[in-house]
Amino acid sequence: MNMESTKKGERTDIERGHAFHLLYEMLRIRRFEERCAELYSASKIRGFMHLYVGEEAVAVGVIDALKPEDSVVATYREHGHALIRGIPAGAIMAEMFGKVEGCSRGRGGSMHLFDDKTHFYGGNAIVGGGLPVAVGMALASKMKKEKGVTCCFFGEGAVAEGEFHESMNLAALWKLPVIFVCENNLYAMGTALTLSESVTDISKKAESYNIISDPVDGMDVLAVEKAAQKALTAVRAGNGPYFLECRTYRFRAHSMFDPELYRKKTEVEEWKKHGPIVRFTRYLKENDLLNDKDLDDIEQKIASEIEEAVAFADAGRPEPVEDLTRFVYSEGGKS
């Protein structure tokens, strides 16, 4: 189903509870990150922080389609992925506050969120660096005959890295259960796709490695979800890797240090009109699946979760400096 193909009053096959869930998760990520930006300005969060605002439909559509046994490898712009995957908002916020209650004990920060319970393998801040690792995790699943699929996110900037091409080749060669999700937001930091790639159709690059590759409207959560389900079905059937190019857009700066000299404000405003949340909200309202009261309820619930997360992070403890050199090597125990 595609939002564009339905008109006001048309019956849809989306179940109301599920629609609510998708909207709720996108809004939850949006509000969480808006709060992060405030907390950054208030110096509660430091270092690099990259917001996902505008791209929420990708993480929500894909990760919602995953199963608990699947694994996620993400990038430094991964707050949204961590939230939808199920890492508690408090543990994520505490991580950004540099507290020991954080999901990586305050050792990782915004760019390195990790969680074993949800098989969330970071937060990789080297562009392209997560791809070979995802390939290896998929190799382990295959060799151990486990059912899990590895889901690897990266931006279109990674496509220029050698690791991208090496990983595509290896995953396809060994028919590994991995789904590659390219979040094409058109800018690698400040360099436009057209200025960095001789071939700008990214899905073609994956195809050239014999990987089934679908371009998807990354601003349409239902389209992303549908594409992810199709991809996962194929991967779970043992057909090897699958590639989704989710075409999306980042509404805010690359990081908190970016003055955005490389694009016009009008371009950003134009994209915002077609943002994943406004679009899905409008669609649900037009189909009588959502009213203003529902939306207020959702917003209130999210606001209270976020304030709880902030309070949790605020109340967290800084790790004692005496523990500085822990976690360089494992403490006891053999593999």
Partner: peptide, 28 residues
């Protein structure tokens, strides 16, 4: 060939794959 794996000339990919496989419970 499952356990003696010839790789392409992709040092970054196959070393990274070793890291990933180790994370996934193998001993590469």
């Amino acid at each position: 060939q499952e356990r003696i794996r010839d790789t392409p000339l992709s040092e970054s990919a196959f070393v990274g794959a070793g890291i990933g496989a180790a994370l996934g419970g193998m001993l590469p």
